[in-house]
Computed example of a mutant assay.
Amino acid sequence: MAREIEIEEVETRRVPGRFGRLFALVSWPSFLVAAVAETVFFSLINPRELYLLGEPVHFSPLATYTIGFFGFWCV
């Protein structure tokens, strides 16, 4: 008297919408370009020798690299 149970398969994969695809198409290449731009910029310029509005920057080198990366990424 075994009873068979029917299991219905449900599609669980999410397909990104138009905005999600556009965001991925823009953000990933810009991320890669920002990484290259930061590498080139900071290979030529020491972060301890940067000046902002005539005053030396008092951030740590890691903070300077991080701010620089996000600046390049926004551009």
Rank of each mutant, 00 (worst) to 15 (best):
S43P: 00
F31Y: 14
S60I: 00
F31P: 01
A2I: 11
V10P: 04
I5P: 00
H58D: 14
P56F: 06
R14H: 10
V75G: 15
C74P: 01
E49A: 05
P61V: 00
P47M: 02
G20H: 07
A2S: 14
C74M: 10
Y65M: 07
F70H: 08
A37W: 12
W73Q: 02
G17T: 04
P16Y: 06
S30C: 12
I7W: 14
L50T: 06
R18S: 12
E6I: 15
N46T: 00
E49L: 03
T12K: 12
E38S: 15
G68I: 01
G68L: 03
F31D: 07
F72V: 06
A35V: 08
G71S: 10
S27L: 07
E38A: 13
G20S: 08
G71W: 13
W28Q: 08
F70V: 11
F70E: 02
I45N: 05
L44G: 03
G20A: 12
I5W: 11
T39G: 07
V40T: 06
L53K: 03
V40Y: 06
F19T: 05
F69E: 02
T39I: 06
Y65T: 01
F23I: 10
R48T: 07
F59C: 04
G17R: 01
E6P: 10
T66D: 09
R13H: 09
L25E: 12
V10R: 15
S60C: 01
L25A: 15
F72N: 09
F42L: 06
P61T: 00
M1F: 11
V33F: 14
P47Q: 02
S60Y: 03
E11G: 07
R3Y: 15
V40I: 15
F31N: 07
W28H: 05
T12N: 09
S60H: 05
P56G: 01
C74K: 10
M1T: 14
F42Q: 01
F41E: 01
G20C: 04
V33L: 15
T12L: 14
V57L: 13
V75K: 04
A24E: 13
T66K: 08
F69L: 05
L62N: 09
L52N: 10
G68T: 04
F59N: 11
A35T: 04
G68W: 02
R21H: 08
Y51S: 07
H58V: 12
L52K: 07
N46I: 00
A34D: 05
A37H: 08
R48I: 03
L22Q: 08
W73H: 13
L44C: 04
L53Y: 09
E49T: 03
T66S: 10
G54A: 03
F59W: 13
F41Q: 01
I5T: 12
F19Q: 10
F23M: 14
R21V: 09
F23K: 11
A24T: 08
G17Y: 02
A2L: 14
R3Q: 11
R18Q: 12
A34E: 03
L52T: 08
F23T: 14
L62T: 11
V40H: 05
E9C: 07
